[in-house]
Design a protein around this nucleic acid. Structure first.
Length: 478
RNA sequence: GGGCCCGUAGCUCAAUGGUCAGAGCAGAGCGCUCAUAACGCUUUGGUUGCAGGUUCGAGUCCUGCCGGGCCUACCA
């Protein structure tokens, strides 16, 4: 029996997720977890909400609520929806948990002790009216290239030219519209990823079985320009994990918090501690510390492709740089995007199908089945209502529904109202099943969701009796 | 601009460099009735985006082009 640790990319707190988010991480992770539980393996499946960062603060302000209240409410909403979709997390935590505060500060302290943190003074745009520093994309103005008047500080959406905020003509805050902006100097901590570049590259090169989507993105970042760059891990925000060096204060960093992408992956670990503290488990280090029993754990992460750089580089840099025996990921399953009727799903534009709407239309299993059988593994895939309707009506209602109806009515007509006692199946009938079972047991725990085709576990080209087993494990058969 | 991914039947998708490129749906034909206006069987449909190259052999590897998408480090 193997021990399998599974994490799904943690969904951001600022709203209800759409089906594209769901199929890109949580849903396939859930299928994978259920499959290995059903095969008798020991599984720990963790997810959480990702609660820090500028968008969370702004969403709370827009809702007219204190950010911690807003996040608590949205956590409950997301928890209810994940339950509604029957996502079988062993724990659904929060990146704002005390456990994550402690652990994030611990990692930062260890990295500093190992000389992997640099303090960098930099200039950044500050909005007086908003009383906050503005990330580049929260500054709007007129594009110097094409004249578009709603260009963002990082890029003009109209002409796609990349910009620096200081390039903008008549810059203003995208939050309040205020033009009372000034450039202020601020000091931040940087994770010296460049110092770990060669170790990260060697580690990634050793992962020859990862999806090309995962490794190609990682290698791009490792080799682009001057190679892997250091990354700022602190921000001038109010809501977040206060910058501390382990248990100690961090002189010069008062009032600052860690960057959301520094603390979010650490929540994978902290979530296991939350799982124990919630009384659902007994020993979380057994899953995460290779010196405390986790050396035989196989750890698999699920995420959309936009998350890959942080999971292949930043988070491993944090773990390796700590010098402590934390468990590194063994396999990163990344997904492309699910599109909606010819375009992208869009949370900000309300375009697409959202988790709450979906459940109000049909029960979760309809969605689970369709989404998993159309998971965008090799390229972006497409949701259309026509396809969804036709697939559900034909495959679920007609084929499966009719089959169940037929079997139950057949039994009733032959055996009456009583369920007949079971018997033993003959050896001849069992033989194909045994062959199938043997192949399943020898399969490597690597996720692949394509409903047809010959990827997977078959090592023999000999035709075999019975029906192919190489279907997605959720394919309803009885 | 740079990098990467993708392009396969009307649609949604498969295919460790190796039989005749396969499934489901849609279309056509036949059949069945234990069953949901169902179901089963058969079947039509392909210059694998285009043009070259490597190879005994290319959907797969290489080069160029066309088209779509993603990323490009201060959104997450």
């Amino acid at each position: 029996m193997a021990r399998i640790l599974i994490t799904s990319a943690i969904p951001y707190i600022n709203g209800i997720k759409h089906l594209g988010n769901l199929v890109g991480s949580q849903l396939p992770a859930d299928l994978f977890a259920r499959y290995f539980r059903a095969r008798g393996h020991e599984v720990l499946f963790l997810c959480a909400t990702d609660e820090h960062g500028t968008p969370a603060e702004l969403a709370a302000a827009k809702a007219g609520k204190p950010v911690e209240v807003y996040c608590a409410e949205m956590w409950a909403v997301q928890k209810e929806l994940s339950d509604g979709f029957r996502l079988s997390f062993d724990h659904f935590g929060r990146s704002s948990s005390p456990q994550n505060h402690r652990l994030t500060q611990h990692f930062a302290g260890r990295l500093a002790e190992n000389g992997l943190i640099a303090e960098v003074a930099e200039k950044q745009v500050f909005s007086v009216a908003d009383n906050r520093f503005l990330p580049d994309r929260y500054i709007e103005g007129t594009c110097p290239n094409c004249g578009y008047d709603r260009a963002r500080g990082d890029q003009c959406e109209n002409c796609t030219k990349q910009l620096d905020p200081t390039d903008l003509i008549n810059p203003r805050s995208a939050i309040s519209g205020s033009t009372d902006l000034e450039v202020r100097e601020t000091k931040h901590l940087y994770l010296r990823q460049s110092a770990l570049r060669d170790r990260l590259e060697a580690w990634i090169d050793s992962k020859t079985d990862w999806p090309i989507l995962t490794t190609s993105i990682a290698k791009k970042w490792l080799n682009d320009g001057d190679g892997l760059q250091d990354r700022g891990i602190t921000r001038d925000l109010h809501w977040g994990i206060p910058v501390r060096k382990g248990d100690a204060p961090w002189p010069g960093m008062e009032g600052k918090v860690f960057y959301v992408w520094f603390d979010a992956p650490i929540e994978y670990i902290a979530c296991a501690a939350e799982w124990v503290d919630a009384g659902k488990g007994t020993d979380w280090e057994r899953w995460w510390r290779t010196d405390k029993g986790a050396d035989d754990v196989r750890y698999i992460q699920f995420m959309g492709k936009d998350n890959v750089p942080f999971h292949t580089l930043s988070f491993p840099a944090t773990i390796i740089g700590s010098g402590e025996p934390w468990k590194l990921v063994d396999y990163i399953k990344s997904f492309n995007y699910l599109n909606y009727d010819g375009g992208q799903f869009s949370t900000s534009q309300g375009r697409g199908v959202f988790m709450d709407q979906a459940l109000s239309i049909l029960p979760a299993d309809y969605w689970r089945w369709w989404l998993l059988s159309h998971a965008p593994e090799n390229s972006d895939s497409e949701f259309t209502w026509e396809n969804f309707q036709a697939s559900v009506n034909k495959d679920l209602a007609d084929v499966l529904g009719n089959f169940v109806s037929r079997v139950t009515k057949f039994c009733r007509s032959k055996y009456g109202e009583e369920v007949p006692a079971g018997g033993r199946t003959g050896d001849r009938a069992c033989a194909p099943t045994r062959a199938t079972w043997k192949r399943w047991r020898s399969a490597r725990p690597r996720p692949s969701f394509a409903p047809s085709g010959s990827r997977g576990t078959n090592t023999s080209s000999r035709p075999r009796p019975g029906r192919s087993s190489r279907k997605t494990p959720t394919a309803p058969r009885r």
